[in-house]
Design a protein around this nucleic acid. Sequence first.
DNA 1: ATTGGTGCAAATCCTTTGCAATAGC
DNA 2: GCTATTGCAAAGGATTTGCACCAAT
Lengths: 144, 144
Amino acid sequence: VTTDAEPALTQDLVALLRSGGRRVTSPRLAILRELRQAGGHVSAHHVYQRVRPELPGISVPTVYATLELLVELGLARRVEAGARATLYDSRTDPHGHAVCRRCGAVADIPASVEEEPLLRAAQGDGFRAESAELLVRGLCCACR
Amino acid sequence: VTTDAEPALTQDLVALLRSGGRRVTSPRLAILRELRQAGGHVSAHHVYQRVRPELPGISVPTVYATLELLVELGLARRVEAGARATLYDSRTDPHGHAVCRRCGAVADIPASVEEEPLLRAAQGDGFRAESAELLVRGLCCACR
DNA sequence: ATTGGTGCAAATCCTTTGCAATAGC
DNA sequence: GCTATTGCAAAGGATTTGCACCAAT
């Protein structure tokens, strides 16, 4: 149980939780750490498997709830990779995703879209926009 | 069985199917017609229910396969509205979607993003880009 | 006559729910 | 001590198989 790996990042989460009146718990710290170690785009199931050695009793619903919480806090982003699985990305800067429609592989797209104008464009009819996502679907190298 | 409702559109599908060596079948014609009549963003289940009166024996897998086929042919677009359901949109011109993260409601976003540059940006690593999608997640008026 | 499409039923898999027990504040 | 969070087990649904039959070419 390394406690000095990414101290600053953990502190971010702690601060955000405290300021929102939420509790600091082991699953929350462990899941954020795993999400960042993974580096890429991971499924809830993947996180669940990787966190289990550290927290043997952790449950699947907790993983889902926590990932969604991290998204709300702005520490992660959802990637709608298709019906097969929702993925979570620890990169929070604006970038798109290329998703293979056959195997579900995801790659980052360098193209950066300005989020602000999009969020504003979506504000019609009382809709409160929270985040924007850019998806390109197609076939990856291996699946063609 | 009205055969003169949208003759031109049906002809489009027939031509595309024939030129691709695929067969012209009742489910394909009926599902495209329903998708266009619905006008908005519909789920496979919705299409299934609406097409049944006309084709009582149609099956769920056929609806899924056909909708995916229409996407491949460029006559429909997928909308990754979340884990709850993939939606299909008969509008094929570039536009984004505002998706409520709570109730799943979908609205069109006037903001038009140029697809071409995005598709090109995604072409790295042998990835063959097929379509781009712009999603804005948030809370709709009713769910706030 | 070929074989791509279809229907059927069931399996698979992701995600969420309800509720009692626990742990953070 | 309150109450948000958790774990558990199970339900809920969307999507996809496998296979036999049928119908478009």
